[in-house]
């Protein structure tokens, strides 16, 4: 498998607070990696460092072997290849659904308007939002916004999509519609890196699960390894809280 991203000895501190401590891992083409762990364990910060929304304090992030922290790839160009879906959607409030999905294509990728529109429509259909192209974000529900946000990210033709707790801001009824879209994406071969609290998604959809605790990767492996046969105490403790609450996971 072709390696897309490699994170080496990544460290991130906020003041004296060390949020990420020596993180090492890699993302290969076709991987669907779920990052799980309790709040404050550094999952989101890791994702934000990978997208350079946070500046890593130390270590290297290699994109196809090129160090992005050293500026070997242009920041903006790199970001078009590594898309991001946020917990709070972050759709552009001044633009309607269609323009949200075309503005980046036209202004960043310099695509023609028609081409951008066709591409946007293709992905909006994929997430089931093609009827809402004239709606503004404030007129949509949370689940609808998140589906548009996924279409917006996909329209840039990224190599990897980062999901930062994409369903955490949604009520339970809407979680399903977003997860369904993500499952479709995963089965279509999209490379994904998902920070999530949806254990069923992590177990059933991902190819690899990363458990983070206190700024470190505590354990990493296939969903079966992590969920059925966790090695570390910390992992068992964390998972027991979820399995106890939801019989479906037993």
């Amino acid at each position: 498998m072709e390696e897309i991203l490699r994170v080496e000895h990544l460290v991130k501190t906020f003041g004296t607070n060390e949020v990420l401590k020596d993180i090492d891992f890699s993302v290969n083409a076709g991987d669907v990696i779920s990052i799980i762990g309790s709040s404050g364990s550094g999952k989101s910060t890791l994702l934000r460092c990978i997208n350079m929304l946070e500046e890593a304090t130390g270590g290297r992030i290699l994109y196809h072997g090129k160090d992005i922290l050293a500026g070997e790839v242009g920041e903006d160009q790199y970001r078009t290849k590594v898309g991001m879906v946020f917990q709070s959607f972050n759709l552009f409030n001044n633009l309607n659904v269609l323009d949200n999905c075309t503005v980046g294509q036209v202004h960043v990728l310099k695509r023609k308007k028609d081409e951008a529109r066709a591409k946007a429509m293709e992905y909006l259909e994929k997430v089931g939002m093609e009827q809402y192209i004239t709606a503004k974000p404030r007129q949509l529900s949370g689940g609808q916004k998140q589906r548009v946000a996924i279409a917006r990210a996909l329209a840039m033709d990224p190599e990897v999509l980062l999901f930062d707790e994409p369903t955490s801001a949604l009520d339970p009824e809407m979680v399903g519609e977003v997860l369904d879209v993500m499952k479709d994406l995963a089965s279509s071969g999209m490379t994904m890196l998902v920070v999530t609290h949806e254990m069923a998604f992590a177990r059933d959809v991902s190819t690899r699960v990363v458990f983070m605790s206190d700024g470190r990767i505590e354990e990493e492996g296939s969903p079966a390894d992590i969920f059925l046969n966790p090695q570390k105490e910390r992992t068992k403790e964390f998972l027991s809280r979820f399995t106890a609450g939801s019989p479906a996971l037993n």
Binding site: D76, R79, G83, F86, F89, N90, V108, A149, A153
Partner: peptide
Amino acid sequence: GQKEGARAIGM
């Protein structure tokens, strides 16, 4: 978040 959304698609 608006700024982050924009930066995240490479603007």
